[in-house]
């Protein structure tokens, strides 16, 4: 075992512990901001753990996406959570018994899967096109489904925004799109 592998192993276990502790803190702290950023720390630790497994892209993108997501989520959590406006200290748990039961059940299920599934042993020499092979093994037979589903999902998102937007294009510019909009705040392009 070389020095690099020892460092990677230590880093893996440290980040695994950090991920679990930070994840538990999400429910122990009494502020929305702290809960959100405890979750962010947990996800960053998961990303670091993935990096130690030499999955660089997935690890970095996990960190990137989760920090961005938590930065935005903090705004929504503070705005919409709870009866008070989440600027006061508050309890982060609700429906305690069902939540504990579900969490325990999922943990047992995942842990059993991790221990009981006969995982393939890593070959001594990792093939250079590992990512391509994983991608094809995971997605190869399902690409047609994904290619069909993703436009449908995208159209649903766009349609949802169009339907819920209180001021769309025709509200702002009139039926012939020729009027000058009366926006509460002018945009930067001068329309």
């Amino acid at each position: 075992m070389g020095l690099g592998e020892v460092v990677a192993a230590v880093l893996f276990w440290v980040s695994a512990v950090v991920a679990i502790v930070a994840g538990a803190l999400v429910f122990r702290v009494d502020s929305m901001a702290r809960a959100t950023y405890a979750l962010a720390v947990s996800f960053v630790a998961v990303g670091v753990a993935v990096l130690t497994l030499r999955q660089d892209f997935i690890g970095l993108v996990t960190i990137l996406m989760m920090i961005m997501e938590m930065a935005i989520m903090a705004v929504f959590m503070v705005s919409y959570m709870g009866m008070n406006p989440a600027l006061m200290p508050m309890d982060m748990t609700h429906a305690k018994r069902p939540s504990a039961a579900i969490a325990g059940g999922v943990f047992v299920l995942l842990a059993a899967a991790a221990l009981l599934i006969p995982w393939p042993l890593v070959p001594a020499r990792v093939p250079s096109d590992l990512i391509v092979r994983i991608g094809e093994a995971l997605m190869g037979s399902k690409m047609l489904v994904m290619l069909t589903v993703s436009p449908v999902l995208f159209v649903t998102i766009v349609a949802g925004i169009v339907l819920t937007s209180p001021r769309g294009r025709y509200d702002r510019f009139g039926d012939r799109l020729r009027e000058r909009p009366r926006d509460p705040e002018g945009g930067g392009v001068g329309r």
Binding site: Y37, A40, D56, F57, V61, I63, L64, I67, M68, A74
Partner: peptide
């Protein structure tokens, strides 16, 4: 000498979102 230097840069620059908001909060 990271093989994904550009992604690394993007990751850190997104962390700045969190840092500036935490400074405000």
């Amino acid at each position: 000498d990271l093989p994904l230097g550009i992604i690394w840069f993007t990751t850190i620059d997104v962390a700045l979102w969190a840092l500036w908001w935490l400074l405000g909060w």
